[in-house]
Design a protein around this nucleic acid. Structure first.
Lengths: 108, 108
DNA sequence: CGTATCTGCAACCAATTGATTGCGCTTTGT
DNA sequence: ACAAAGCGCAATCAATTGGTTGCAGATACG
């Protein structure tokens, strides 16, 4: 689970529409593609493709309920991305090093 | 300093070559474009363009020294990106909420 | 049963991106 | 002074991306 995970996560987070979608889903503002499309200035199909990318990055999970699909946020990949950032940043920043220790509570 | 910063940071981090460059610079393995290009399977000009993007995201800083340019890592934007992630993730994950409190030590 | 929703899939299009080559400018060293 | 090293800029190219429209398959509701 190294290297390839951050790729998808950072790529997914690189798009403003995708970040907005994740925020809406995380805050419980909306859950289905049509609901989310109503909140954003793009079509439902565009939202659906973005959701597919977020799902591939494991940032959201889909669950079908009848004719609609309900999306929910998944926290783990964000933690992985933060771990990568702190691991890199710990080399030259003390504050990030401290955060790295907070992220990885493993005792050697 | 809201919104536009993460855009550049996440976009910069979305590319594998750029992540490798940041890791090399952060670890002190290399500092100049030609040094970095020697470590990666791309040309020096490609490295230079990637460095420009990292610089635009404030993840690295350039400093000319004679005929060569020495790059150094800048920690702040990583902290901003982590703050964004924890802020979004805090809505549905307790562990990220705890991390958010660690990142933002501001008392209201 | 028929109709209106909600969704996914395919084709297609413009814009961006990652990467390359070639050239010109500045700095170092003999 | 002159050659070599390091760097930046411009043009170019293939591949990817974000977005759209159109259509077909399920599912709820009258």
């Amino acid at each position: 689970m190294n290297g390839h995970a951050e790729q998808a996560v950072f790529a997914a987070l690189a798009d403003p529409t995708r970040r907005a979608l994740l925020r809406c889903i995380a805050s419980g503002e909306a859950s289905t593609p049509t609901e989310l499309a109503a909140l954003l200035p793009v079509t439902r199909q565009a939202v659906s493709k973005h959701l597919a990318q977020l799902e591939q990055a494991r940032l959201v999970g889909a669950e079908r309920s009848g004719r609609e699909v309900r999306f929910q946020a998944t926290p783990a990949p964000l933690g992985d991305a933060i771990a990568w950032m702190t691991a890199v940043g710990a080399n030259w920043d003390e504050r990030l090093a401290a955060l790295a220790r907070a992220v990885e509570p493993e005792a050697p």
